[in-house]
Write a protein that binds this DNA or RNA. Sequence first.
DNA 1: ATGCCGTGGAAACCACGA
Length: 275
Amino acid sequence: MRIVTYNINGIGARLPNLRRWLDESAPDIVCLQELKAPQEKFPESVIRDAGYGVIWHGQKSWNGVAILARGTEPEEIRRVLPGDPEDNHSRYIEATVHGLLIGCLYLPNGNPAPGPRFDYKLRWLERLITHAAALVARDSPVILAGDYNVIPTERDVYKPERWVDDALFRVETRAAFARLMQQGWTDAIRKLHPDAQIYTFWDYFRNAYARDAGLRIDHLLLNPAAAARLVSANVERNVRGWEKASDHAPTGVQLREGRGAVRQMGPSTVGPSMT
DNA sequence: ATGCCGTGGAAACCACGA
């Protein structure tokens, strides 16, 4: 079971690109961010023609998130991050798919910092921390996947010294993210590649992709039940090099099948199950 | 060090992104 998060930076402009990626990569579950499309203009038929069930929360011009599931329908739990009735940005959607609870999020950018936009980012992080506390404790697998707009550590940015005053890397941002992680989440990419230089985003300008001047800001956080099934994690960075690419690359994990999908090992069973 | 590029929406520029 492969679960991938991908900030597509406008589903309208990215649709041929997205369709190609779905066909070639065939992920089981996809969390999309930055649809930049109103609810009624989401290209639902294209997604369904590609073989995916889908739920989405759109918004005119900005934000927008979706969960795609190959061969099945995501069962929506909520489409708002609790904690602020005044917040009308489309930045969160949550569903159960294939026995997994998936939260798909697009955390506010927060620049310029300091300022009201940074305050909003920090408040959003606090709301996420509150909501995540209930999710991490579940006995069943939970994944919080998305564009966090958080550079967790110095090794997650090509030149840390240039980013210390940026909302993605300020100490307040990193401290809040660290508190989230301390709940017991596993950063899947970092868990499996503790020392590697891995980025998920490269600016469009300054030849950033060719220079590998990137950031690691797209994350998949796994609760203990999900982390127990973690097999691999990777960034499909070649997709960033495609024509008309998003500035982010798809970032994903492979999970072992859950107990419900594998034959039980009973007392009379002596070997691995045959499927 | 910097929106130098890209997207969407409105209006031939602006907001926003990270």
